[in-house]
Simulated scan of single mutants.
Amino acid sequence: MNTKNNQRFKDNEKRFEQALLQLSKTMPYQKMTVRALCEQAHLNRTTFYAHYYDIEDMIEKMEAHMHEDLLARFDTTNHALFSPSSFTTFLHYIKDHQSFYRIALHTRHIFPLQQGYDPLWKEVIQPLCIQNGITDPDEMTYYLIYFQAGFTMALRHWVDTNCQMSEKQFAQLLILCLPSIWQEKKNLPKEVPAY
């Protein structure tokens, strides 16, 4: 029986994920249909709906799994917050999975970094703002929105251009784009090298 989390269920999920990535090579995400995904995966619609509500739900679940995988690979003890090494580790992962992120980043409309919102707010944004004398929650929210939107759109452009800029160069550029009150002067590159 094909119950949730048994091997057949997991195999079918993998087939749908591979079908999504394969279809993304020939059509934009916005034109994908459940029917096209099912045909590509050689599975039926009933099987699709046993796994997902719709294509957006599928992308969200894929992203959640990738987010967990990324966090498992990320060693926070060796990386200072907003340092070139912390961004570079993240960017290596994005580049290795750019087919998926090309789709996922085009679905962003509100609060681009939905996964990890609470930790980002509590462990990063609030402490950085408070450390710099910003205690008004509304003002902190603007910093969060600015960071999320800017970071996501920069990342989206980098992926859309096939990650032409090296991870190291892009990491340095991202650091330069941080609000000045968050930048650690010792981590700032003097300039972003040409690529």
Rank of each mutant, 00 (worst) to 15 (best):
M1R: 05
M1K: 07
N2V: 10
N2I: 06
N5D: 11
N6K: 04
D11Y: 11
N12L: 04
N12D: 14
K14N: 06
R15C: 08
E17A: 08
A19K: 03
L20I: 03
Q22C: 14
L23Y: 00
K25A: 12
K25L: 14
T26P: 00
P28C: 06
P28V: 07
Y29P: 01
M32Q: 05
T33Y: 04
V34Q: 04
R35K: 04
R35L: 06
A36S: 14
L37I: 07
E39R: 06
Q40P: 02
L43Y: 00
L43C: 04
L43D: 00
L43G: 01
N44R: 05
N44W: 00
N44L: 03
N44V: 12
R45W: 00
T46S: 11
T47L: 06
T47H: 02
F48Q: 03
Y49F: 11
Y49D: 11
H51R: 06
I55L: 04
E56S: 14
D57R: 11
M58F: 00
I59W: 00
I59C: 12
E60D: 12
E63N: 13
H65R: 15
E68H: 12
E68S: 06
D69Q: 13
A72I: 04
R73F: 00
R73N: 14
D75S: 10
T77F: 08
N78T: 14
L81V: 15
L81Y: 02
F82D: 02
S83C: 10
S83W: 01
P84F: 00
S85I: 05
T88P: 01
K95E: 10
S99N: 11
Y101V: 04
R108C: 12
R108Q: 12
H109Y: 01
H109W: 05
F111T: 13
F111D: 15
P112D: 06
P112S: 13
Q114N: 05
G116L: 08
D118N: 11
D118F: 08
P119M: 14
P119I: 15
L120M: 15
L120A: 07
W121N: 13
K122P: 01
E123C: 10
V124A: 01
V124C: 13
Q126A: 05
Q126E: 09
Q126R: 07
P127K: 08
Q131F: 03
Q131E: 12
D136L: 08
P137I: 10
P137W: 13
D138L: 12
D138I: 12
M140H: 04
Y142I: 12
Y142T: 10
Y143F: 15
L144N: 02
I145G: 07
F147P: 01
F151S: 05
M153I: 12
A154S: 11
A154N: 08
A154V: 02
R156L: 15
W158Q: 09
V159Y: 01
D160Q: 07
N162D: 15
C163H: 03
E167Y: 00
K168R: 09
Q169R: 10
A171T: 05
Q172N: 06
Q172I: 07
Q172F: 07
I175R: 01
C177F: 06
L178M: 08
W182F: 15
Q183P: 03
K185L: 14
K185D: 09
K186C: 07
L188I: 12
L188R: 09
L188M: 14
L188Q: 11
V192K: 03
V192L: 05
Y195H: 09
